[in-house]
Design a protein around this nucleic acid. Structure first.
Length: 751
DNA sequence: ATTCCCTTGATTTTT
DNA sequence: TCAAGGGAAT
């Protein structure tokens, strides 16, 4: 162990050796955070004498958990992590709930609903309540309910605090939603975090058990925890107070998902005796890249003090690339990659291209393909979100959990069995009037005279299929169950018959799922049960194997880049309203800035920042504005393609402005003026080429009363943007606040 | 009951 | 631009 400690720097060593009491490790980008966590765990086991099963390590991603487990095993030997609870909040608490959830009126075979499943339930409830999806969008409902759950606000409290019409409706939906999930014996993603809290509140004995057991608590990415996660970790740590949180407030990028940065900012208040360790030496990047990173993050107000430094070499300047449009931008990136491969000997796997929104990947993909550069996309539309896969999963879920009506409804007519909307309504009504579940009615279909005769046989077959799968699940592996399902439903044959490209893709996906089940069953001989398999499917939907062996360029959103590093990085789309996506909101802006910080600090040796002067948006080519983030970069370390430093260009621009004053006729394409000028200029620019778009929208002003086709009457509370892009925020009496695109909203002013 | 076409409407990030 | 949902046709 002493040898291990010698591999650490001073701060890292302090972090590792602070085994007892509350500890906060502020780990700057590239400062060896993972190394510290793994060494600390090894230290706990090896030197402090903790048993692995006394340690609970919570991570944000499965990837991080897997990496840590692997590295601990490397340090301490195979099998050393047996009994160690290391994984995401969701995975660990799902495991805990499987043990104890009967205390909350669920059974241990509960289903886990993803966001899509839960939105289906909400939509269904809205229909039941006669709520128009037009006035109240299911998206809003879902995000509000989820936000409430993340803050551990239960339906009762939500109802009490509901102020306006919309919130009252949502409160109503929330209550029903909770009831429905209970009836279905299902938990959604947020429940995995808040049910443990409810459990602990109701059953102090169970809390006490885990408090005693988990003598050591470690939480990674603490800046991205939400209130529920905060509460549950506080509860668990209350007894031993050996809580170690690791994070970097500068890399907090999930506030939109309920992450609460004050968790990390307030750790000292929660634990006044906490030891704080700052890891500020960066081992990843060049001095140039760190200088750029520091110049970005210093613009943010709310942050813990820290300053990254490195002993690495100075490195290449950052290259700023400007293109006419997104296709040219993608071309330039491709060209740069080809060039670097030839001149500097990089290979494909050394490159990563980041973008703010998934939609941007398209142009880049096209260009890479055209240039014969192999690539892979991370965090793509998840395999498990595909319809055919969700159908199969619904079968498996239902076989395990007959209460799961959501899944039942999904598969009842897959493949088609002639049980359509009308038949289903019949069954539903019957179930309601008899006070039993739909599946109960289906099971005893023949006994109900109201069930149409032609349904009897398909219902019987369905039932036999489910029962047979249940039998198989009891005795054999998950793979066997999936295989049986395929065989009996003839899903694959049916798709093969269709023989369209779409059907073939589905066919492949189903095959892929089968092999997944196979490899799961082969690899988990100890527990290859359907139940465990399904849990994996629900919580570990990372199909992205970061397989080092395939030598490809990586494409991903910046969010999914967190925790990774690449020798050469391209950050694309540095344009106002794209990155930062919503520059008007100060709070969002700080988070976008942190996102940019994350992007920049992924690079080891060479960074490129790119933007396009125009980009297709909403179907038409629109001029763009260079992102303010470019102006915020330290001019000493950024070069244009022609090799000029930004610092010099900015000075020249300033000088020119002083002489020419208001004459913008000589304006060059490359605009390196300071942000304040840059920001004001668009209206001048866009006013002359496209005046026609403005008159089409009625002149709106704040305070004006307007009429909307669907939402009725409302009052304008804010305006933003110009031309086709102009948006208006309106408060409607019945629908609450809405942001509408003026061009499409068709608002009629009235008095 | 299913399929296909057309309209509509919405544009972020995802454990 | 493009995806999804609704409605009409078969």
């Amino acid at each position: 162990m002493n040898d291990l400690l010698n591999e650490l720097n001073e701060a890292q060593r302090v972090a590792v050796e602070s085994a007892k009491g509350p500890v906060m490790i502020i780990a700057g980008a590239g400062s060896g955070k993972t190394r510290v966590i793994t060494y600390r765990t090894a230290y706990l086991i090896h030197s402090v004498g903790a048993s692995p099963h006394q340690i609970l390590a919570l991570t944000f991603t499965n990837r991080a958990a897997a990496e840590m487990r692997e590295r601990i095993e490397t340090l301490l030997g195979n099998g050393s992590t047996d009994g160690l609870w290391i994984g995401t909040f969701h995975a660990n608490f799902a495991r805990l709930l499987r043990q104890h959830i009967s205390a909350l009126g669920f059974t241990s075979n509960f289903s886990i609903y993803d966001a899509e499943d839960s939105q289906r339930v909400m939509k269904d409830i809205m229909t039941e309540l006669g709520l128009n999806a037009q006035t109240l969008s299911p998206n809003t409902v879902q995000s509000k309910i989820s936000a409430a759950k993340n803050k551990f606000i239960l339906p009762a409290e939500f109802e009490q605090t509901a102020r306006d019409y919309v919130d009252e409706k949502i409160a109503h939906i929330y209550r029903r939603y909770a009831e429905r999930l209970r009836k279905n014996n299902a938990l959604d993603f947020d429940d995995l975090l808040i049910k443990p809290i409810e459990l602990f509140l109701q059953r102090p004995d169970i809390l006490e058990f885990y408090q005693s057991r988990f003598a050591y608590l470690m939480i990674d990415e603490y800046q991205d925890t939400n209130r529920a996660q905060y509460l549950v970790s506080k509860m668990l740590a209350a007894k031993h107070r050996n809580i170690c949180v690791v994070g970097d407030d500068a890399q907090s990028i999930y506030s939109w998902r309920g992450a609460d940065i004050s968790n990390i900012l307030g750790f000292q208040q929660d634990y006044p005796d906490a030891v704080t360790v700052r890891l500020e030496e960066n081992y990843r990047s060049t001095k140039v890249i760190l200088k750029a990173a520091n110049s970005i993050i210093k613009r943010n107000r709310e942050q813990l003090e820290k300053k990254l430094f490195t002993q690495n070499e100075t490195g290449e300047p950052i290259t700023l690339m400007v293109a006419d449009d997104e296709r040219r931008e993608a071309d330039k990136i491709s060209f740069a990659i080809r060039n670097l491969k030839v001149t500097k000997g990089f290979s494909n796997r050394d490159f990563a291209i980041f973008y703010r929104t998934n939609a941007q990947s398209r142009a880049i993909e096209d260009a890479l393909r055209a240039n014969a550069i192999p690539y892979k996309i991370f965090g793509n539309i998840s395999f498990y979100k595909r319809k055919e896969i969700k159908d199969v999963v619904a079968y498996l879920r239902f076989a395990l959990n007959e209460q799961d009506e959501e899944s039942l409804l999904r598969i009842i007519n897959v493949p088609t069995r002639g049980i359509g909307e009308t038949s289903l309504d019949k069954l539903r009504q019957l179930a309601a009037s008899e006070g039993v579940s739909i599946y109960d009615v289906m099971k005893r279909a023949a006994m109900y005279p109201d069930v149409p005769v032609r349904l009897i046989s398909p219902l019987g077959e369905f039932r036999m299929l489910i029962e047979s799968m249940q039998e198989t699940a009891k005795k054999y592996s998950a793979y066997q169950v999936v295989a049986e399902l395929y065989e009996k439903t003839r899903l694959l044959e049916l798709l093969k018959q269709e023989n369209t490209s779409e059907a073939n893709a589905r066919y492949d996906n189903l095959q892929e799922f089968l092999s997944l089940a196979k490899s799961f069953s082969d690899q988990n001989e100890g527990d290859d049960s359907l139940k465990t398999f399904l849990e994996n499917v629900s919580l570990v939907n990372e199909t992205e194997d970061k397989d080092e062996s395939d030598n490809k360029v990586s494409l991903m959103t910046i969010h999914s880049a967190k925790g990774l590093e690449f020798p050469v990085v391209f950050v694309s789309g540095l344009e106002e309203k794209l990155f930062p996506l919503n520059p008007d909101d100060a709070k969002d802006l700080e988070e976008e800035r942190r996102l940019f910080y994350v992007a920049v600090t992924r690079a080891r040796q060479k960074l490129h920042v790119t933007y396009a002067k125009s980009r297709y948006r909403f179907g038409n080519l629109q001029p763009t504005l260079k992102s303010r983030f470019i102006d915020e970069l330290d001019g000493d370390v950024v070069q244009t393609e022609s090799g000029q430093f930004l610092r010099d260009l900015r000075a020249a621009e300033k000088e020119k402005k002083r002489i020419v004053r208001d004459d913008y006729s000589q304006e060059t394409y490359e605009d390196f003026s300071e942000f304040s000028d840059n920001w004001k200029r668009p209206e001048r620019k866009s006013a002359s080429p496209k005046p026609s778009t403005l008159p089409t929208s009625p002149a709106l002003s704040i305070g004006m009363k307007v009429q909307h086709k669907i939402f009725g009457s409302g009052k304008v509370i804010a305006l933003q943007g110009v031309g086709d892009d102009a948006k208006v925020r309106v408060f409607f009496k019945t629908a609450g606040e809405k942001t509408l695109v003026v061009k499409y909203a068709n608002l009629t002013p009235y008095n």
